[in-house]
């Protein structure tokens, strides 16, 4: 059940990100909603599941982008792992935490993309790219972090309830 729902979430997010969000681009940029879900899932489910979720979401983006396959998968893997590592014991209803992690992660991710894909091609005017791509992407993504984390929190809560009921059912059978 969890695998099916989370796979569907990754797919639906990708489809919306590629076909719907370009219609609501602000200053020519669209938000990285996949990153919000990766971080949210890491916080809610811990490092291992966060890393797997991040890897798969990143891989999907890799496959259809023109860059080398594995780059977004690696970033998603590490972001998911790190999000779940130290923060698992935090209060899950604290929406400020995903907000801060998304803020830091999106800036780092955009910076890594710039360095790995463009810096060595001679695009040296970092300030220009920071103001025209990184800043708008960061603001747009961060502004969606709390509503999307709430949605993920809700979905995760439903799945946990379902899993808990199922566990009780099987334990009842055993008794």
């Amino acid at each position: 059940m969890r695998i099916a729902v989370m796979s569907a979430l990754i797919l639906i997010n990708y489809v919306l990100q590629t076909s719907v969000l370009p219609h609501v681009a602000i200053l020519g940029v669209i938000p990285d909603t996949a990153l919000i879900f990766i971080i949210g899932y890491g916080i809610l489910r811990g490092d291992i599941e966060g890393a797997i979720f991040g890897f798969l979401a990143g891989l999907l983006q890799d496959v259809f982008s023109g860059g080398p396959i594995g780059m977004f998968a690696l970033m998603g893997f590490l972001i998911g792992y790190i999000s779940g590592k130290p923060f698992r014991d935090f209060f899950k209803d604290n929406y400020f935490l995903p907000f801060i992690i998304v803020l830091v992660a999106i800036i780092l991710q955009q910076f890594v993309i710039y360095v790995t894909s463009f810096l060595f091609l001679g695009y040296l005017d970092f300030t220009h790219y920071a103001l025209s791509i990184i800043l708008p992407t960061t603001i747009y993504t961060v502004s969606l972090s709390i509503p999307l984390y709430s949605l993920l929190h809700f979905i995760n809560g439903r799945i946990e309830n379902w899993e808990s009921n199922r566990r009780n059912l099987f334990e009842g059978d055993r008794e």
Binding site: A51, P68, I69, L74, F77, L78
Partner: peptide, 21 residues
Amino acid sequence: HKRLFLALGITISLLAIIITI
């Protein structure tokens, strides 16, 4: 085996990058 998991994930991703490039 978290360290193994972490190493495996990074290795698979890096291998994929090298294979694509």
